[in-house]
Amino acid sequence: ALAAGVEMIYADFEFIKQFPAAVEAVRAAGKQIALATPRIHMPGENGYHNNILRLKPDAVLVRNTGALYFYLRHRMENPDAAHPRLIGDFSLNIANHKAVDLFTEVGCDIVTPSYDLNIQQMVDLLGKADTSKMEVVIHQHLPMFHTEHCVYCTFLSEGTDFTNCGRPCEESRVSLQDRIGMSHPVRVDEGCRNTVYNAIEQSGAEYLANFMELGVSSYRVEFLEETPEQVHEVIDLYNRALRGEISGTQVWKKLKATNQLGVTRGQLVK
Protein backbone atom coordinates (compact mmCIF):
# COMPACT_ATOMS: atom_id res chain seq x y z
CA ALA A 1 0.00 0.00 0.00
CA LEU A 2 2.86 2.38 0.79
CA ALA A 3 4.52 1.54 -2.52
CA ALA A 4 1.25 2.39 -4.26
CA GLY A 5 1.41 5.91 -2.85
CA VAL A 6 -1.26 5.76 -0.14
CA GLU A 7 -0.97 8.68 2.30
CA MET A 8 -2.89 7.10 5.21
CA ILE A 9 -2.55 3.45 6.22
CA TYR A 10 -5.06 1.72 8.52
CA ALA A 11 -3.55 -1.10 10.54
CA ASP A 12 -6.25 -3.58 11.55
CA PHE A 13 -4.28 -6.55 12.81
CA GLU A 14 -5.32 -9.57 14.83
CA PHE A 15 -2.73 -9.05 17.56
CA ILE A 16 -1.54 -5.78 19.07
CA LYS A 17 2.07 -7.04 18.98
CA GLN A 18 1.90 -6.56 15.19
CA PHE A 19 1.25 -2.82 15.46
CA PRO A 20 4.77 -1.50 16.21
CA ALA A 21 6.28 -2.84 12.98
CA ALA A 22 3.48 -1.22 10.97
CA VAL A 23 3.95 2.11 12.73
CA GLU A 24 7.70 1.95 12.09
CA ALA A 25 7.25 1.17 8.38
CA VAL A 26 4.74 3.96 7.84
CA ARG A 27 6.83 6.49 9.76
CA ALA A 28 9.90 5.53 7.70
CA ALA A 29 7.89 6.24 4.53
CA GLY A 30 6.82 9.66 5.81
CA LYS A 31 3.13 8.71 5.71
CA GLN A 32 0.38 8.61 8.34
CA ILE A 33 -1.07 5.64 10.19
CA ALA A 34 -4.32 4.89 12.00
CA LEU A 35 -4.66 1.95 14.38
CA ALA A 36 -7.99 0.12 14.63
CA THR A 37 -9.67 -0.71 17.94
CA PRO A 38 -11.32 -4.10 18.50
CA ARG A 39 -14.91 -4.32 17.33
CA ILE A 40 -16.13 -5.00 20.87
CA HIS A 41 -14.98 -3.29 24.06
CA MET A 42 -15.62 -5.24 27.26
CA PRO A 43 -15.00 -4.12 30.88
CA GLY A 44 -11.36 -4.38 31.87
CA GLU A 45 -10.04 -4.07 28.32
CA ASN A 46 -8.68 -0.52 28.45
CA GLY A 47 -5.15 -1.88 28.25
CA TYR A 48 -5.63 -2.34 24.52
CA HIS A 49 -6.39 1.36 24.09
CA ASN A 50 -3.52 2.40 26.33
CA ASN A 51 -1.18 0.41 24.10
CA ILE A 52 -2.55 2.20 21.03
CA LEU A 53 -1.91 5.57 22.65
CA ARG A 54 1.66 4.58 23.56
CA LEU A 55 2.38 3.94 19.87
CA LYS A 56 1.31 7.53 19.06
CA PRO A 57 -0.60 6.91 15.83
CA ASP A 58 -1.87 9.81 13.75
CA ALA A 59 -5.42 8.52 14.14
CA VAL A 60 -7.49 5.78 15.75
CA LEU A 61 -10.26 3.94 13.91
CA VAL A 62 -12.92 3.78 16.63
CA ARG A 63 -15.42 0.95 16.30
CA ASN A 64 -17.67 1.25 19.33
CA THR A 65 -18.91 3.82 21.80
CA GLY A 66 -16.93 2.30 24.68
CA ALA A 67 -13.68 2.94 22.83
CA LEU A 68 -14.88 6.40 21.78
CA TYR A 69 -15.58 7.26 25.43
CA PHE A 70 -12.08 6.10 26.41
CA TYR A 71 -10.30 8.36 23.90
CA LEU A 72 -12.58 11.35 24.55
CA ARG A 73 -11.96 11.05 28.29
CA HIS A 74 -8.22 10.83 27.66
CA ARG A 75 -8.45 14.09 25.69
CA MET A 76 -10.25 15.81 28.55
CA GLU A 77 -7.88 14.50 31.21
CA ASN A 78 -4.78 15.44 29.20
CA PRO A 79 -5.62 18.75 27.53
CA ASP A 80 -2.00 19.71 26.82
CA ALA A 81 -0.96 16.39 25.25
CA ALA A 82 -0.95 15.53 21.56
CA HIS A 83 -3.91 13.34 20.65
CA PRO A 84 -4.65 11.15 17.62
CA ARG A 85 -7.56 12.05 15.38
CA LEU A 86 -10.65 9.92 16.01
CA ILE A 87 -12.25 8.28 12.99
CA GLY A 88 -15.65 6.73 13.71
CA ASP A 89 -16.09 3.46 11.81
CA PHE A 90 -19.24 2.12 10.14
CA SER A 91 -20.15 0.10 13.24
CA LEU A 92 -21.20 3.29 15.04
CA ASN A 93 -24.24 2.95 12.74
CA ILE A 94 -24.19 6.48 11.35
CA ALA A 95 -27.15 6.26 8.97
CA ASN A 96 -28.44 9.86 8.81
CA HIS A 97 -27.17 13.44 9.06
CA LYS A 98 -28.33 13.75 12.67
CA ALA A 99 -26.03 10.89 13.65
CA VAL A 100 -23.18 12.55 11.73
CA ASP A 101 -23.72 15.75 13.71
CA LEU A 102 -23.96 13.84 17.01
CA PHE A 103 -20.67 11.99 16.62
CA THR A 104 -18.70 14.90 15.14
CA GLU A 105 -19.95 17.28 17.83
CA VAL A 106 -18.97 14.88 20.60
CA GLY A 107 -15.42 14.54 19.27
CA CYS A 108 -15.07 12.37 16.15
CA ASP A 109 -12.91 14.13 13.57
CA ILE A 110 -14.17 11.94 10.72
CA VAL A 111 -17.04 9.44 10.53
CA THR A 112 -17.83 6.52 8.22
CA PRO A 113 -21.42 6.02 7.00
CA SER A 114 -23.22 2.82 8.00
CA TYR A 115 -23.00 -0.13 5.62
CA ASP A 116 -26.79 -0.47 5.77
CA LEU A 117 -27.34 2.35 3.26
CA ASN A 118 -28.15 1.83 -0.42
CA ILE A 119 -27.02 4.41 -2.95
CA GLN A 120 -30.13 6.62 -2.68
CA GLN A 121 -29.95 6.63 1.11
CA MET A 122 -26.21 7.40 0.92
CA VAL A 123 -26.83 10.33 -1.45
CA ASP A 124 -29.56 11.64 0.86
CA LEU A 125 -27.18 11.43 3.83
CA LEU A 126 -24.26 13.09 2.04
CA GLY A 127 -26.52 15.83 0.72
CA LYS A 128 -27.47 16.88 4.25
CA ALA A 129 -24.22 16.24 6.15
CA ASP A 130 -20.84 17.95 6.31
CA THR A 131 -18.98 15.77 3.80
CA SER A 132 -15.62 17.26 4.81
CA LYS A 133 -15.98 15.15 7.97
CA MET A 134 -16.93 11.93 6.22
CA GLU A 135 -14.98 9.00 4.79
CA VAL A 136 -16.61 6.47 2.48
CA VAL A 137 -15.42 2.85 2.23
CA ILE A 138 -15.40 2.04 -1.48
CA HIS A 139 -13.78 -1.41 -1.47
CA GLN A 140 -13.90 -4.13 1.17
CA HIS A 141 -14.65 -7.66 2.30
CA LEU A 142 -17.82 -6.96 4.27
CA PRO A 143 -17.56 -8.11 7.91
CA MET A 144 -20.73 -10.17 8.21
CA PHE A 145 -20.82 -10.94 11.93
CA HIS A 146 -18.74 -11.04 15.10
CA THR A 147 -18.88 -13.67 17.81
CA GLU A 148 -17.24 -14.61 21.10
CA HIS A 149 -17.32 -18.24 19.98
CA CYS A 150 -13.77 -18.98 18.76
CA VAL A 151 -13.75 -21.26 15.74
CA TYR A 152 -9.99 -21.77 16.07
CA CYS A 153 -10.20 -22.93 19.68
CA THR A 154 -13.15 -25.21 18.95
CA PHE A 155 -11.85 -27.00 15.86
CA LEU A 156 -8.04 -26.71 16.03
CA SER A 157 -7.50 -27.28 19.73
CA GLU A 158 -8.37 -29.58 22.61
CA GLY A 159 -8.55 -26.56 24.92
CA THR A 160 -11.50 -24.46 26.02
CA ASP A 161 -10.15 -20.89 26.00
CA PHE A 162 -6.99 -18.80 25.51
CA THR A 163 -5.38 -20.23 28.63
CA ASN A 164 -5.13 -23.77 27.23
CA CYS A 165 -5.91 -23.65 23.49
CA GLY A 166 -2.29 -23.23 22.39
CA ARG A 167 -3.20 -20.20 20.25
CA PRO A 168 -3.73 -22.03 16.92
CA CYS A 169 -4.95 -18.71 15.50
CA GLU A 170 -1.34 -17.51 15.39
CA GLU A 171 -0.33 -20.30 13.01
CA SER A 172 -3.44 -21.21 11.00
CA ARG A 173 -6.13 -19.61 8.85
CA VAL A 174 -9.76 -20.77 9.01
CA SER A 175 -12.70 -20.11 6.69
CA LEU A 176 -16.36 -21.07 6.93
CA GLN A 177 -17.79 -22.67 3.79
CA ASP A 178 -21.39 -21.83 2.95
CA ARG A 179 -23.98 -23.92 1.11
CA ILE A 180 -22.79 -22.80 -2.35
CA GLY A 181 -19.13 -23.51 -1.62
CA MET A 182 -17.88 -19.99 -0.88
CA SER A 183 -15.20 -19.85 1.84
CA HIS A 184 -15.63 -16.86 4.14
CA PRO A 185 -12.45 -15.92 6.07
CA VAL A 186 -12.56 -15.97 9.86
CA ARG A 187 -10.18 -13.67 11.75
CA VAL A 188 -9.58 -13.31 15.48
CA ASP A 189 -8.83 -10.30 17.66
CA GLU A 190 -6.87 -9.79 20.87
CA GLY A 191 -9.95 -10.73 22.91
CA CYS A 192 -10.32 -14.12 21.15
CA ARG A 193 -13.44 -12.95 19.29
CA ASN A 194 -14.00 -13.98 15.70
CA THR A 195 -15.07 -11.86 12.73
CA VAL A 196 -16.41 -13.58 9.62
CA TYR A 197 -15.82 -11.71 6.35
CA ASN A 198 -17.59 -12.13 3.04
CA ALA A 199 -15.50 -14.17 0.63
CA ILE A 200 -16.10 -11.74 -2.24
CA GLU A 201 -15.11 -8.09 -2.18
CA GLN A 202 -17.65 -5.33 -2.54
CA SER A 203 -17.01 -2.21 -4.58
CA GLY A 204 -18.67 1.20 -4.56
CA ALA A 205 -16.68 2.29 -7.61
CA GLU A 206 -19.76 2.90 -9.75
CA TYR A 207 -20.87 5.66 -7.39
CA LEU A 208 -17.58 7.54 -7.05
CA ALA A 209 -18.84 10.34 -9.30
CA ASN A 210 -21.89 10.79 -7.05
CA PHE A 211 -19.74 10.93 -3.94
CA MET A 212 -17.26 13.40 -5.42
CA GLU A 213 -20.06 15.68 -6.62
CA LEU A 214 -21.39 15.73 -3.06
CA GLY A 215 -18.01 16.83 -1.74
CA VAL A 216 -16.57 13.62 -0.31
CA SER A 217 -12.78 13.78 -0.52
CA SER A 218 -11.76 10.89 1.76
CA TYR A 219 -12.10 7.27 0.63
CA ARG A 220 -11.01 4.00 2.21
CA VAL A 221 -10.01 0.75 0.51
CA GLU A 222 -9.82 -2.29 2.79
CA PHE A 223 -7.82 -5.46 2.16
CA LEU A 224 -7.92 -8.82 3.90
CA GLU A 225 -5.91 -11.60 2.19
CA GLU A 226 -4.85 -9.96 -1.07
CA THR A 227 -1.36 -10.35 -2.52
CA PRO A 228 0.93 -7.30 -2.80
CA GLU A 229 0.28 -7.29 -6.54
CA GLN A 230 -3.49 -7.21 -6.03
CA VAL A 231 -3.19 -4.43 -3.46
CA HIS A 232 -1.16 -2.31 -5.85
CA GLU A 233 -3.52 -2.91 -8.78
CA VAL A 234 -6.70 -2.17 -6.80
CA ILE A 235 -5.29 1.06 -5.36
CA ASP A 236 -4.10 2.13 -8.81
CA LEU A 237 -7.57 1.57 -10.30
CA TYR A 238 -9.29 3.66 -7.66
CA ASN A 239 -6.69 6.41 -7.92
CA ARG A 240 -7.23 6.57 -11.67
CA ALA A 241 -10.98 6.79 -11.14
CA LEU A 242 -10.59 9.57 -8.57
CA ARG A 243 -8.43 11.49 -11.05
CA GLY A 244 -11.11 11.05 -13.72
CA GLU A 245 -8.96 8.90 -16.00
CA ILE A 246 -11.41 5.99 -15.97
CA SER A 247 -15.02 5.64 -14.87
CA GLY A 248 -16.21 3.89 -11.73
CA THR A 249 -17.93 1.30 -13.89
CA GLN A 250 -14.62 0.53 -15.61
CA VAL A 251 -13.03 0.01 -12.20
CA TRP A 252 -15.72 -2.48 -11.21
CA LYS A 253 -15.44 -4.39 -14.50
CA LYS A 254 -11.64 -4.52 -14.32
CA LEU A 255 -11.72 -5.72 -10.72
CA LYS A 256 -14.13 -8.47 -11.60
CA ALA A 257 -11.80 -9.68 -14.32
CA THR A 258 -8.64 -9.24 -12.24
CA ASN A 259 -9.82 -11.07 -9.15
CA GLN A 260 -11.40 -13.96 -11.07
CA LEU A 261 -14.04 -14.56 -8.41
CA GLY A 262 -14.96 -10.95 -9.00
CA VAL A 263 -16.50 -8.28 -6.83
CA THR A 264 -20.13 -7.50 -6.14
CA ARG A 265 -21.72 -4.07 -6.40
CA GLY A 266 -22.27 -4.36 -2.67
CA GLN A 267 -24.86 -2.94 -0.34
CA LEU A 268 -25.15 0.39 -2.19
CA VAL A 269 -27.28 -1.09 -5.00
CA LYS A 270 -30.92 -0.09 -4.59
Rank of each mutant, 00 (worst) to 15 (best):
N51S: 15
N51F: 14
N51P: 00
N51I: 14
N51H: 15
L53A: 12
R54C: 12
R54G: 12
K56L: 14
P57E: 07
P57A: 13
A59D: 07
A59V: 09
V60T: 06
V60R: 00
G66Q: 07
Y69I: 10
F70M: 05
F70H: 04
Y71L: 08
Y71M: 07
Y71R: 02
R73I: 09
R73T: 15
M76A: 15
E77S: 10
A81I: 07
H83L: 10
H83I: 09
P84V: 08
P84K: 05
R85H: 09
L86D: 00
I87S: 01
N93Q: 12
I94E: 02
I94N: 00
A95G: 08
A95V: 04
A95P: 00
H97D: 12
K98D: 11
A99E: 06
D101H: 05
L102D: 04
L102W: 03
F103G: 01
T104R: 00
G107C: 07
C108N: 05
V111F: 00
P113F: 05
Y115W: 10
L117M: 10
L117S: 06
Q120E: 14
Q121H: 11
Q121I: 06
M122Y: 05
M122N: 02
V123S: 08
V123T: 10
K128Q: 15
S132N: 14
S132Y: 01
M134C: 10
M134Y: 03
E135R: 03
V136E: 02
V136G: 04
V136F: 02
V137S: 08
H139V: 07
Q140V: 08
H141N: 15
L142K: 06
P143R: 03
F145S: 13
E148H: 13
E148Y: 09
V151I: 14
Y152W: 08
Y152S: 02
Y152C: 04
C153Y: 00
C153F: 01
T154N: 12
F155I: 11
E158P: 03
E158S: 14
E158F: 09
G159H: 03
G159L: 04
T160K: 13
T160E: 11
D161Q: 09
F162Q: 09
F162W: 11
T163H: 11
G166L: 07
G166N: 06
E170D: 14
E170K: 13
E171H: 10
